[in-house]
Design a protein around this nucleic acid. Structure first.
Lengths: 331, 331
DNA sequence: AAGATTAATGCAAACGGTTGCAGCAGTGTC
DNA sequence: GACACTGCTGCAACCGTTTGCATTAATCTT
């Protein structure tokens, strides 16, 4: 149905190779000829067939983007950033959702590998070993996980966690709970390590947990009965769930317990109390990741992996407040 | 680098066509041969090249999914539903975000058209005319817009709006504001028409508006100074923004104004007051749309367009309450 | 036992582009 | 005027699969 390069060639009285060059290497063809070809192409509504082009060039001009949960607002912003940026480079981004399942994650990478030039792997749940192996199939950029020898986009979440805990400490909190994220998460580990390294506090770690509202909700009782006054959650979704659960149990936030989230999603700005959180530059991460990936794709085997670290920053709202000493269990 | 069909053929001592058939029409090849081929393929890590296959079959086994805003939770659930369902049919879904821009929407469809077998167009902002034209390029299923002669997935949002307004009326509200959605939106029109048809109320329509939190926030003053006691918003994002704005102006919700949203996103469950809303079955819509599209793709030209209508239902929470008569401007 | 049927496989031409190489005209150089 | 060079275009092979058709051997009919 659709016009092919041959139709255009015939219509403009040149060879197919000239038409091809008109699009892929315009400087090689005479201005006059080029215009004639372009006119004919326009006329016939010709658009190059990407599949055919991919066959000879080995470049699909597609990128894969794998996230744990497309419904998590953090990821949607990352996706937006990646897609918009890729479009300016004449690339398309294929998004896939693993539903937090490492198995699905592995399968998706395998399938995507053949139809894209590179993959953006965000917050992987797979083991390093498996990722290393998969890398032979397709170039990677890994977001939110430090992996030697690969291109990485990281958020400085350790420093964010330190800042968050520092904030709690400055409000007088000493007994602090950390709600960890899912098992395979590098970010979760990073946060935990940073929190553990803060001196002078008494840290209780809960987890691993599902990084969702439900995950947070499910922890409300445990947190309420643990002897803590401050909480840092793996992400905003969990923090919001936790606040909801605590409120339902009659535990006031921030009256009896202060809660800090991570990500800065919209829901955190509209939930009550408004959530104190560590903002993550999700959109910038998406853009940066695309840049690094295209760099990798362009360079082929010889590529040097790059590392980008993006700053985070604490946003103080209403879910954190000073410790109420009279309410402490021990005097 | 990667193993091709030829490598497998050589390794198993058969012709390439036999290898091809082993995968695409297994019943045509002898069991013994097939096993030999499969073993060799496994051994070499062979996976068929989709681009090459697409070239001869004309089927890419990819679907396009176009949404106005991937960060809108309503769409993310729709996407999740579509992707998961497509995977079970050995299809992949390409998601693209138009940023609410009809121009971008048109371009995206054009570009996608060549690399997918069909497109899921969700809540289009384009005019019917343009969509009709674009349909010649690629099969469509349109979600959230009634279009004759095309496959449609609709939510019964008119009935949802009626129910929402009925709820407000039953609480004593008579002067009601409707916050419309973006200009090209069929859903917005549908809601407006339904609301206008409700007898015995005094309806003020604001809009068109940007269907985001900011859109709602921007309307707070106008709503506060309009003489209304109840509001129905085009979606939850706007409703949440409005509530935020009203609260900031000292207008109590639901004390002085009751607010109803549409969609049932998570943020509505955690914002305070919890949002009364009309739930939309987003995930089911995604699944259904994929079904209809594959039906269309399979049937080719002869396909009969189908229409699926999904039910909505009102969820009553805390952002709506009885009219306080003593506060009304006129006695 | 000859002919018809069936199952399994091979052959080769597509699909729609890209690209190294060759050819050719025009220009500049000595 | 021979030569090299440059700019443009055509030629044809190739990318990895699919698929209609031909071929072959084995099985079935009568």
């Amino acid at each position: 149905m659709a016009a092919t390069i041959r139709d255009v060639a015939q219509a403009s009285g040149v060879h197919v190779s000239t038409v091809s060059r008109t699009f892929s290497a315009p400087h090689l063809v005479n201005t006059e000829t080029r215009n004639r070809v372009l006119a004919a192409a326009e006329d016939l509504g010709y658009r190059p067939n990407r599949a055919a082009r991919a066959l000879t060039t080995g470049r699909t001009h597609n990128l894969g983007l794998i996230v744990a949960d497309i419904a998590n607002p953090f990821f949607s912003h990352l996706i937006k950033g990646a897609q918009a940026h890729a479009r300016t480079r004449d690339y398309h981004v294929f998004v896939a959702d693993t539903d937090e399942d490492p198995q699905v994650e592995e399968e998706l990478i395998q399938t995507l590998a053949k139809q894209v030039d590179g993959v953006l792997l965000c917050s992987p749940r797979l083991s390093n070993r498996v990722i290393e192996k998969l890398r032979e199939d397709v170039p990677f950029v890994v977001v939110n996980r430090r992996m030697k020898g690969m291109s990485n986009v990281l958020m400085d979440v350790g420093s964010g966690a330190r800042e968050a805990i520092g904030h709690l400490v400055s409000l007088g909190h000493r007994r602090i709970a950390l709600l960890a994220g899912p098992a395979g998460s590098w970010t979760s580990r990073e946060i935990t390590d940073a929190a553990r390294a803060v001196p002078g506090i008494d840290l209780t770690v809960f987890g691993p947990n599902s990084p969702t509202e439900h995950g947070g909700l499910a922890l409300a009782e445990a947190v309420a009965s643990a002897d803590v006054t401050g909480v840092l959650a793996y992400n905003d979704l969990m923090a919001i769930g936790l606040v909801e659960g605590l409120t339902a149990l009659g535990v006031e936030v921030p009256g009896r317990v202060s809660v800090v989230g991570i990500d800065d999603i919209v829901a955190g700005r509209v939930s009550r109390p408004k959530l104190t959180t560590v903002a993550m530059p999700a959109e910038a991460a998406g853009r940066t990741a695309v840049d690094l990936l295209l760099q990798l794709v362009g360079a082929g085997e010889t590529a040097t992996p790059a590392l980008a670290t993006l700053a985070t920053n604490l946003i103080i709202r209403d879910s954190t407040g000073p410790v109420r000493h009279e309410l402490r269990a021990d005097p």
